[in-house]
Amino acid sequence: MICPICGKEFTPRRSIQKYCSYECRRYANRHGANDVRPEKSSTAPVIREFRCLKCKKLVKVRDRSDGRMKFCSQHCEKLYWKHSKKVKAATVYREFTCKECGKVVAVTDPLDRRRIFCCRQCRIRWFSRRSAEK
């Protein structure tokens, strides 16, 4: 087998070994050589679409096994978190309708993902009504 980084021929010790040495494997990980994914055909349906937080590139995910959600590559993710102290958090904006009263509520807190009621009173009324039905 031939090492894709240095071009040296080697005999792999494991069935999944791609690189001849630790140094070549480390180089590949640091420089994004492992980020290369075979592209799905352009006719395959887009599962999700997002902009990379680091380079702002539009990413269209077509493969279910592709777990990318925020970054286009490992390289962009590493750079983003390496310099994250200098980057302001992106403002999250989400609207939802209260399950109890139907009021439309806008949420900008990035940690507030699961909220489904506009206030504490609506939550209590909804749960008390549900328990009375049972």
Rank of each mutant, 00 (worst) to 15 (best):
Ile2Glu: 14
Cys3Gln: 12
Cys3Asn: 11
Cys3Thr: 09
Cys6Asn: 07
Gly7Trp: 05
Lys8Thr: 15
Phe10Lys: 01
Arg14Glu: 13
Ile16Asp: 15
Arg25Trp: 07
Tyr27Trp: 05
Arg30Val: 03
Arg30Lys: 05
Gly32Ser: 05
Asp35Gln: 04
Asp35Gly: 00
Arg37Pro: 03
Ser41Gly: 14
Ser41Val: 08
Val46Tyr: 11
Arg48Leu: 11
Arg48Asp: 12
Phe50His: 08
Arg51Thr: 08
Cys52Trp: 00
Leu53Thr: 04
Val59Ile: 15
Lys60Ile: 02
Asp63Gln: 11
Arg64Ala: 12
Met69Val: 13
Met69His: 12
Gln74Thr: 05
Cys76Trp: 02
Tyr80His: 08
Trp81Val: 03
Lys82Gln: 14
Lys82His: 15
His83Asn: 15
Lys85Cys: 02
Lys86Asn: 10
Val87Trp: 04
Ala90Thr: 09
Cys98Ser: 03
Cys101Leu: 10
Lys103Arg: 12
Lys103Glu: 09
Val104Thr: 10
Val105Glu: 00
Ala106Gly: 15
Asp109Ile: 00
Asp109Cys: 03
Leu111Pro: 01
Asp112Pro: 03
Arg113Pro: 00
Arg114Lys: 15
Ile116Ser: 08
Arg120Thr: 12
Cys122Phe: 06
Ser128Ala: 09
Ser128Thr: 12
Arg129Met: 05
Ala132Glu: 06
